[in-house]
């Protein structure tokens, strides 16, 4: 039986005539990991703020845990964990203190907060940094502390806005591992990202958002199946020649996308297409066969790449 914890219908947010979120609808089930994928400025963060009950919607309806954010903002927020896009940890306090103070905002007893803070420092692998100053932490550690802080109230839903933006690959993987554990424990995750690999790693279901509207919805595999081919052949002929060569690619692959720096050939079998290409007398400077990703889905849906 479906048990949605977040239901948005025709949700809108307008700033001085500009529609940041322009009528989007989605539902997130309990225990699900749900992603909003889209480029910067697509309306993801605005959507997150409305779900987080810190931004009043302009139109449409929204229910979080069966409550309306307009009327029950604090009640909804008591059940959420929020990891904002930019860390707002308290730099005047030490690492563990950040957790202690934050837990109190939820009205939790001091002893319970202290116990929970120690558990979360272990979870975030920050035990030996408990007394450190926040500014002394690396970017990855700060993010982990922010996530630990978001978990202090044992939330039903965790909202993560661009959780790994700005982190190096190793820090991202540590973070993904932590988030994956939460997912396994049944925490509902709602996250925004413009990284395809992140969405593929963490999300059961995704909506692709662009210019405040939803372009497509489904699991990563479904979206790839629906909007892309199994494999992609990427070839480079040098930026001056790409568009010229593209004209000679008629009949090769299912579909061809010409980007400024490379040509993408969508096909069921990349290696076979590469052979056909060389047989036709075309010799790319570099070539690469890879599996289709959400990046390709996004390109197909919007005609643009995610990171521009």
């Amino acid at each position: 039986m479906p048990d949605p914890v977040i239901v948005a219908q025709d949700l809108r947010k307008t700033y001085a005539g500009f529609a940041a979120v322009d009528g989007i609808s989605f539902a997130v089930e309990r225990g699900e990991s749900f992603g909003l994928l889209g480029p910067n400025g697509a309306g993801k963060s605005t959507t997150m703020r409305m779900v987080g009950a810190v931004s009043t919607r302009t139109g449409g309806s929204l229910s979080v845990l069966g409550l309306d954010p307009d009327r029950h903002g604090p009640e909804i927020r008591s059940q959420l964990g929020v990891v904002p896009q930019s860390d707002n940890l308290d730099t005047e306090l030490r690492v563990r203190e950040n957790l202690l103070v934050y837990g109190r905002y939820f009205g939790l007893p001091r002893a319970q907060v202290a116990r929970r803070a120690d558990e979360l420092l272990a979870f975030a692998q920050l035990e030996d940094k408990a007394k450190a100053k926040v500014d002394a932490l690396s970017g990855g550690m700060k993010r982990r502390l922010t996530i630990a802080r978001a978990l202090i109230n044992d939330p039903s839903i965790l909202l993560l806005d661009e959780p790994t933006t700005g982190l190096d690959p190793q820090a991202r993987h540590i973070l993904w591992d932590r988030l994956f554990r939460l997912k396994e424990q049944g925490t509902t995750l709602l996250l925004t990202t413009h990284y395809m690999d992140e969405a593929e790693q963490l999300c059961d279901r995704i909506v692709v958002v662009d210019k405040g509207a939803i372009m497509a919805e489904g699991s990563p595999a479904e979206l790839i199946r629906r909007y892309s081919s199994k494999e992609v052949l990427e070839v480079r002929f040098g930026s001056s020649r790409n568009s010229e060569v593209a004209e000679r690619l008629q009949g090769i692959g299912d579909r061809v996308e010409v980007l400024p720096d490379r040509i993408l050939i969508y096909t069921g079998n990349g290696e076979a297409e590469l052979v056909r290409l060389t047989d036709a007398g075309l010799h790319p400077i570099t070539s690469l066969v890879r599996r289709s990703s959400l990046e390709d889905v996004f390109l197909r849906l919007t005609g643009r790449t995610l990171i521009e």
Binding site: V5, L65, G66, L67, S156
Partner: peptide, 22 residues
């Protein structure tokens, strides 16, 4: 919580209880 809460009334009731202190 509004009647629309429906099946969520448990979660909603918990949220309301949890927010009393704050």
């Amino acid at each position: 919580p509004a009647a629309s809460a429906g099946g969520q009334s448990d979660a909603a009731a918990r949220a309301i209880r949890a927010t009393r202190n704050s």
